[in-house]
């Protein structure tokens, strides 16, 4: 499986009034053609920052300080803003949570899809609109020709997310980043939306990064899961391996904090402590150390990522 996206040694910092936030530290992962990888972690762990940084959408305070992110042979970290704008939406696209707010409220939805087609496929107005209607059909919107002139406020949240997906995949990108795509949708709509993404991915060989805090969703929808904690990827393994045999203490805790259909709610265990303050100058090498019950003296010496089993990579000296 050839890698569509190869991220290595990828670090991001934000300069704020109250200090430098070390939001991402040496993040590394690859996503192959047609593969779905999930990026899971609690709020503030750096999942969305990873996505924004990859696409060059960080606000002015955020800077990529080191590393590479190679998409189809092009290093995104070295691309100019103009080159990035041509790659975004064409080769790498993104969908967001809260789809209604993520669409332009006063522009017809068909027009919003057509805008992307005109920009990246160089289509004429008429061809772009025809393409937009075709995309609406592909994401399962009934009566697409009529719906193309609807506005976001006239559609349900699930319909808006379908439009969002249509905008993202209209140009057949090689990579789709889905940032909490089902948050705020009801359960049946969640399943439909994820089915649409999966169908388009399998049809076009598109690689998908699914960003979610919902481990159950990740387990169901992705072949591989990378667990993030405080800007580090602490464990990256095939979904089955990760669920059956998690090796990083944080992953283990995260699984214990996730409800299952079979388990009792009383069996859930919260994770003690909070994410460390990423503005600290004396951040420990392992950012989970303060919350970890398997901490060793050596943990303060440095952090390394190592393959503990085939296709299972962790950042821990004392794995479980």
């Amino acid at each position: 499986m050839s890698a569509v996206l190869d991220v290595s040694d990828f670090s991001v910092e934000f300069r704020t009034r109250s200090g430098i936030v070390r939001a991402l530290d040496r993040v590394a992962f690859t996503v192959g053609r047609g593969e779905t990888m999930a990026l899971v972690g609690e709020s503030g762990s750096g999942k969305s920052v990873t996505a924004y940084a990859l696409l060059g959408l960080l606000d002015a305070a955020g800077k990529i300080t080191q590393g590479r992110a190679v998409l189809e042979g092009v290093d995104l970290t070295a691309a100019s803003p103009g080159e990035l704008a041509r790659i975004r939406g064409k080769r790498a696209a993104m969908i967001f949570q809260n789809p209604r707010a993520a669409l332009n409220p006063i522009r017809p939805i068909g027009q919003q899809i057509a805008d992307v087609l005109r920009r990246h496929a160089g289509l004429s107005k008429r061809d772009a609109m025809a393409g937009a209607i075709d995309m609406l059909r592909q994401v399962g919107i009934p009566d697409p020709a009529r719906r193309a002139s609807a506005y976001p406020f006239e559609l349900s949240g699930g319909m808006c997310q379908r439009v969002m997906i249509a905008i993202a995949v209209a140009t057949r990108p090689a990579l789709l980043i889905a940032d909490e795509p089902t948050t705020g949708l009801d359960v049946t709509t969640q399943a439909v939306v994820m089915d649409i993404v999966a169908k388009l991915a399998s049809e076009t060989g598109m690689a998908t990064i699914l960003i979610t805090h919902d481990l159950a969703l990740a387990a169901e929808r992705s072949a591989r899961i990378a667990v993030m904690h405080a800007g580090h990827i602490v464990e990256d393994a095939a979904t089955k391996t990760l669920l059956a045999n998690p090796r990083h203490p944080y992953t283990r805790r995260l699984l214990a904090a996730t409800p299952t259909a079979a388990g009792a709610l009383s069996a859930l265990r919260s994770i003690p402590g909070n994410l460390p303050d990423l503005r600290r100058d004396d951040l420990p090498p392992c950012r989970f150390a303060a919350r970890c019950d398997r901490r060793l003296p050596g943990c303060d010496a440095g952090l390394v990522w190592r393959d503990i089993a085939p296709a299972q990579r962790i950042a821990c000296w004392n794995p479980t």
Binding site: R88, G89, F96, A102, P105, R119, I167
Partner: peptide, 24 residues
């Protein structure tokens, strides 16, 4: 958020500022 979407779709800054942002 919809301006973030427009940026993520790689629309030109002209389109983003005049068509998407200014009209709203």
């Amino acid at each position: 958020e919809f301006i973030r979407t427009a940026r993520a779709s790689g629309l030109s800054s002209r389109t983003i500022i005049l068509t998407y942002a200014l009209r709203n």
